[in-house]
């Protein structure tokens, strides 16, 4: 690991001011950054510690649920309000990582996770447009079983790894940030960018911009929500495909729906066509299966990951079935 200076920020303005994109990195839980620094993928000169300047509170009020950016994954997942009002969020967090990592990992950091693409994580691989803009993409000619099928470009097919972000997307969450010019709110669906020709850019955050909290609005779908994740082993593995679904039912008819996908997109992926195919229909297996067929429309697959299309259809159908059956 390259040597670096460490700055425990005392004020948020100080952290924002020191957030220089090429040479400094923010650290909160550290589970990702320390790993990537050890891999030499991240080589900052300065690491700015946000633990002294952000909140870890979890609060429930008229507006909904507010998660401080430092709220640890464990604390959010086991929070009584979260489990009651947004089971999909609790389930998604508990489907990710290990208890040890969840004890460290934070809400803000989880949203900014980097991909698990093996070619990105191996600094010895010369071609990675994300790591070294313009250097090419080793994955395109490599082993792509874990890679994305939605939102991919000719420059990058790396999948977004977060489970929690997928649940938050299905819950219409918004990210609140602080930047040099003040504060702003970003709907979660707008936080991450498509790789296009600039896969090195992953979010709309400006240099020095810090996520301060995440707000999940009260929702008629919140309690009827669930997360289903399929992976190579029963626990502690990244998703091959996952779905966060939230339904609002009225006398057996679907009034509104949210469906978001993980493990298949270059960013947490909203399955808008599936949602549209659910609304106004009876809450039956036939409806779920038909709507699920639309979840991966527009997918671009490789021979290694083409299996994700039928897999995702089944994951979505099963998740809808499960949500529909919730009391």
């Amino acid at each position: 690991m390259k040597s670096f200076d460490y700055l425990p920020a005392q004020k948020l303005e100080e952290a924002v001011a020191r957030g220089e994109p090429r040479t400094s990195r923010f650290i909160a839980g550290g589970t990702l950054l320390v790993d990537l620094m050890r891999l030499d993928v991240e080589r900052p000169d300065l690491v700015v510690d946000l633990n002294g300047v952000l909140s870890s509170d979890i609060a429930w009020n008229e507006a909904g649920l507010t998660l401080g950016a430092l709220a640890r994954n464990t604390d959010v997942a086991y929070d009584d309000t979260v489990r009651r009002e947004f089971p999909v969020l609790s389930e998604a967090i508990l489907a990710g990582a290990s208890p040890q990592i969840r004890n460290l990992a934070t809400t803000g950091g989880n949203l900014l996770q980097r991909t698990r693409c093996a070619y990105f994580r191996d600094a010895a691989v010369p071609a990675c447009n994300k790591r070294k803009p313009g250097s090419g993409c080793a994955a395109l000619e490599g082993y792509t079983r874990m890679h994305a099928i939605l939102g991919v470009s000719e420059r990058c097919i790396a999948a977004h790894p977060s489970d929690m972000a997928v649940a938050l997307l299905a819950l219409d969450a918004a990210v609140h940030t602080r930047r040099a010019t003040g504060e702003r709110q970003i709907p979660l669906g707008d936080l991450h960018t498509l790789p296009g020709t600039t896969p090195e850019l992953e979010t709309v955050l400006e240099p020095g911009e810090v996520i301060t909290r995440v707000v999940v609005p009260r929702s008629p779908r919140g309690r009827r929500s669930t997360y289903l994740k399929v992976r190579d082993r029963a626990s502690f593995a990244f998703a091959l495909s996952s779905a966060a679904v939230a339904l609002e039912l009225e006398q057996g008819t679907i009034r509104s729906a949210r469906v978001a996908l993980g493990g298949v997109g270059v960013k947490p992926w909203r399955a808008a066509a599936t949602e549209a195919a659910l609304v106004g229909r009876p809450a039956t297996s036939e409806t779920y299966r038909a709507a699920a067929k639309l979840a991966t429309s527009g997918a671009k697959t490789t021979p290694d990951n083409a299996f994700k299309v039928p897999l995702t259809e089944r994951v979505v159908a099963r998740a809808l079935e499960r949500a529909g059956a919730l009391a």
Binding site: Y6, I27, G30, T31, V34, D35, V47, D49, N51, T74, P99, Q100, I101, N103, L104
Partner: peptide
Amino acid sequence: ARRVNACLILAVM
């Protein structure tokens, strides 16, 4: 009092 991976934590933190 919480279990964590000591390899992922900077000692300074």
